[in-house]
Design a binder for these strands. Structure first.
Length: 569
RNA sequence: GGCCCCAUCGUCUAGCCUGGUCCAGGACACCUCCCUUUCACGGAGGUAACGAGGGUUCGAAUCCCUCUGGGGUCACCA
């Protein structure tokens, strides 16, 4: 394990993305990583990843770095960091400055902590949590912010007594009482008055460094030159600066990014999914979980406590049953919903940065060339999923058909295997050509065509206004012309007698029929057929749909539809 | 509450540094019309913002001040 400062590279900046371990990458984190990556890679520098797992309570599963796959999927790869094998076999990560897990660097931090203590720049503090709490209360009562200050030398006898009592000290930094000016390339300079930063803890009771200490040591050792991170760290920068000065470290350039919010101004959170589901359950006044979603036990527990979150699979099943769309929060949520990685990157970059000149559509290569701290937005942005969807739609409709088919297939293999199995290659390909121009996501061909999967005798016909109108139920045409249902009955016979079941044959037969019986209005014939085979009024082009469903199924479904509609009156 | 930061259409933003070319541009959304076998796409047009009040100046979205509003932070979390 190397502990000497890595030399500043003669060429290019070094940036880092330093999240706590997690299985998922949040969109805010994705944007931070994207900007860090773009800045370094656009200037011939290095981008590295470091796992900040110094909280033993929250990092029990230090191996949980599932978010790395999300980063890779977005097209963001790191020059140094945790090792990861990409789906294409490439080994990403590693590097000379490891370990990239802070929990594995304890001896390094200890060395620097001891140095500070030896120099009198840091000291042991023996206060118990209760004592600290009391001090905080007192400060609050005086309407002051609590600031911990050096409380006097601890004598050898006192120290021995504390030890005997079983107390374990933390180490606090003796913060110089001077005004501190934070230089930030995004927000500009900010001066904190003297005394604003207290004697904060740098080593916890469990021997782990605090975030502030580990960050400063690692950024130095790993040669980080530019720190781009979330705005919540802005004020913390002062702590990092005093530490750097005490340790004789170089100072990176800082830039802080504003947060990303929901359209309703709330902070984007993984709880948003449960929020949507709870609302739907309440609106539908459900008293028991829909069959096949979650267990009664989970249901009761979840409804009984706002803090309980459903596991992802259960939440997805419930959302399907309730016909609500779960909000995407993490990168893999967007992936599952069929968003393209290049679109996510483009859109994320636009939330908080802009290249100017009214340019909106660009790729990571462009971002790399153009990104700089100077055009980063200072204000928080609301994450507009509608605009994201529009961007995704543009990318999909502008895609070469073969490319669309290829990527949909990859998506289906992962998230919609039942379609692949049911349709077979030829029909799968047909579904792709039939769906591309009306698809907004890679998932739309599947999400919107569930009727392709259900058994003929299980297809449900939706009894709503548009269906009734198309079939002429309850309102027969006043002019005595055929109703939709009558067209369907007649077409049933036409279809049954067709010599071949192709789009061309179906269309010409229907066109001929319509010319004779529907004043040439093909729509009057197509809609009833659509309802007959799909159960509703929305599907891909009708001739494609009929081919996709297949002759036997189509006829069986139409028979059921006629019976169903006849019973409605 | 203390400290710090921020403020352009509903939303993301261009313009602000280097005042006049901005009665503020683009995109998404929205509205109207057209196209249409459903849905969607597409085409044409439209509504819509410089938070408020004071200055400075011949002239302010652009510079200064106050207010208001928003955000961040005040942990042995990161």
């Amino acid at each position: 394990m190397q502990t000497d400062p890595s030399p500043r590279p003669s060429s290019g900046p070094v940036t880092r993305f330093a999240p706590s371990p997690s299985g998922h990458l949040h969109v805010g984190g994705a944007r931070t990583a994207l900007f860090c990556w773009a800045f370094a890679k656009g200037r011939g520098g290095k981008f590295l990843i470091r796992i900040e797992d110094t909280d033993q309570k929250r990092s029990s599963d230090a191996a949980s770095v599932g978010f790395l796959k999300d980063l890779d999927w977005l097209g963001i790869r790191w020059d140094e960091g945790p090792e990861y094998t990409a789906p294409d076999g490439t080994l990403v990560g590693g590097g000379p400055n490891g370990s990239y897990f802070q929990s594995e660097r304890l001896p390094i931090y200890a060395r620097y902590t001891e140095k500070l203590v030896a120099e009198g720049k840091a000291y042991e503090a023996w206060d118990s949590p209760e004592e600290l709490e009391a001090m905080r209360k007192e400060a609050t009562a005086r309407k002051e912010a609590f600031r911990y200050r050096f409380r006097g030398e601890v004598t050898a006898e006192e120290r021995a007594r504390y030890l005997a009592e079983g107390r374990v000290p933390v180490v606090r930094f003796r913060t110089p009482q001077v005004a501190i000016t934070i230089q930030d390339e995004v927000l500009g300079d900010a001066t904190l008055p003297a005394g604003e930063v207290d004697d904060f803890v740098i080593r916890k009771k469990d021997g782990f460094p605090t975030y502030h200490f580990a960050v400063v040591v690692d950024d130095e050792l790993m040669g980080v030159t530019h720190v781009l991170r979330a705005q919540e760290h802005f004020t913390n920068t002062a702590k990092h600066m005093v530490l750097q000065d005490a340790l004789g470290f170089r100072r990176p350039t800082y830039g802080h990014l504003s947060i990303i919010k929901n359209p309703d101004d709330s902070k984007m959170s993984k709880r948003d999914k449960d929020k949507v589901l709870r609302k739907a359950v309440k609106e539908k006044a459900l008293s028991a979980p829909p069959a096949g979603t979650v267990t009664a036990e989970e249901w009761t527990k979840w409804l009984g406590d706002e803090n309980v979150q459903l596991d992802l699979d259960g939440a997805i099943r419930l959302a399907e049953a309730l016909k609500v769309q779960l909000p995407e929060i993490n990168v893999d949520d967007f992936r599952r919903s069929g968003y393209l990685p290049e679109v996510i990157c483009n859109f994320l970059a636009l939330n908080g940065w802009s290249p100017g000149h009214d340019i909106e559509k660009f790729d990571n290569g462009f971002l790399k060339e153009r990104f700089g701290f100077d055009r980063v937005m200072k204000t928080p942005a609301k994450f507009d999923r509608v605009k994201l969807l529009a961007f995704n739609t543009d990318a999909i409709t502008g895609m070469a058909p073969a490319e669309f088919a290829r990527r949909c297939r990859l998506h289906a293999d992962q998230y919609r295997p039942d379609y692949v199995a049911r349709l077979g290659d030829a029909k799968f390909a047909l579904l792709m050509t039939a769906c591309q121009e009306r698809s907004k996501t890679l998932d739309d061909p599947f999400r919107t065509n569930g009727f392709l999967l259900v058994a003929d005798d299980a297809l449900a016909f939706s009894d709503d206004k548009t269906v009734r109108k198309a079939l002429g139920i309850g309102a027969a045409p006043a002019d005595g012309s055929r109703s939709g249902l009558e067209h369907l009955r007649a077409m049933r016979g036409v279809l049954a007698g067709l010599s071949e079941w192709t789009q061309a044959a179906l269309e010409s037969a229907a066109t001929a029929y319509a010319a004779e019986h529907a004043q040439g209005k093909i729509g009057a014939v197509a809609q009833p057929l659509r309802i007959g085979v799909s159960g509703g009024t929305v599907s891909p082009p009708i001739w494609d749909t009929l081919v996709l469903v297949g002759r036997a199924s189509a006829l069986a479904r139409i028979d059921r539809c006629i019976a169903w509609a006849g019973a409605l009156g």
